[in-house]
Simulated assay, not measured.
Amino acid sequence: MTKETAKSIAKYSATTKVIGIGTFILLITLLITYNRGKNQGKKEEETKVVPVPLPTVDLEKGVTEDVAKRVRAYALSLHEDLIEIFGMRDVDLYKRLTSENDTVLVSVYNDFNNLYVNEEKGSLTKWLQDEIVQPNAMKAFIERSLNLNLK
């Protein structure tokens, strides 16, 4: 190798290093900017669903222990049903819920939202409305929920 070739390779090597370091710094800067923007978007998208007041219950007393257990069981069952990947809906669950009184429905709505509002789609009603497969029992439950202003 001649001296000129050695200098040329050394010079090229230094230029390549500068370009490589500059590219690396640019990529890191872009990655940090992207992540900050993504996190900011997530914060804005997180829905705060305001609990709906119970229609026929003294708010200081709340619901009875029996009703509270039933409400939690309904909320957990709804979640299990809605995350079912094959879309097989528990029609009996929606029939039972539709036949419940307003206090239980509002309590189920509030409990479900407290547990799962940020998991996927927002409020219980939004989860239900986003389902592709909606049996008649589910549609009746959605309609009843909307009539109670559970959005």
Rank of each mutant, 00 (worst) to 15 (best):
V133N: 06
N35Y: 09
E143T: 09
L26A: 15
S123V: 01
E44L: 10
P51L: 00
V18K: 15
L148Q: 09
A137L: 03
T98L: 10
D58N: 11
S13D: 12
A137F: 00
K61E: 13
D90S: 04
R89E: 04
E120I: 01
K17L: 10
K121G: 03
A10V: 02
V57N: 02
V71E: 11
E45R: 01
K38L: 01
K121V: 00
M138C: 04
M138K: 07
N110P: 06
G87K: 07
W127G: 11
G41R: 11
Y74K: 09
E4T: 12
T103D: 15
T98P: 01
S107G: 12
K139M: 04
G37E: 06
I132K: 08
N147E: 12
A73S: 11
R89F: 03
E4V: 14
A68R: 14
R72K: 14
E84T: 11
T64R: 10
V71K: 06
A10R: 03
K38H: 04
N110I: 02
E143A: 13
V108Y: 02
L54A: 08
F86I: 15
R36M: 14
Q134E: 00
D102A: 15
V67D: 13
R72I: 15
V91C: 08
V52C: 00
E65W: 02
R70F: 01
L82M: 13
E44V: 06
I85R: 13
E100F: 05
D111F: 07
K126F: 08
V91K: 09
A73Q: 08
V63C: 05
V49F: 01
N101R: 14
V52G: 02
L26F: 14
E4W: 04
K11T: 14
S107M: 07
K11S: 13
V104A: 14
F141E: 01
K43F: 04
F24Y: 11
P51K: 00
L124M: 04
T5N: 13
K17A: 15
K151T: 08
L93G: 06
P53V: 02
A137I: 00
T33W: 09
L115T: 04
E100C: 10
L146T: 11
L97W: 06
R36K: 09
D58K: 00
E80G: 13
L59G: 02
K69H: 11
R36G: 00
E65R: 09
V63H: 03
L115R: 09
E80Y: 12
S99A: 15
G62L: 01
E45D: 02
N136T: 14
A10E: 07
T56H: 11
S13Q: 15
L82I: 01
F112P: 03
T98Y: 07
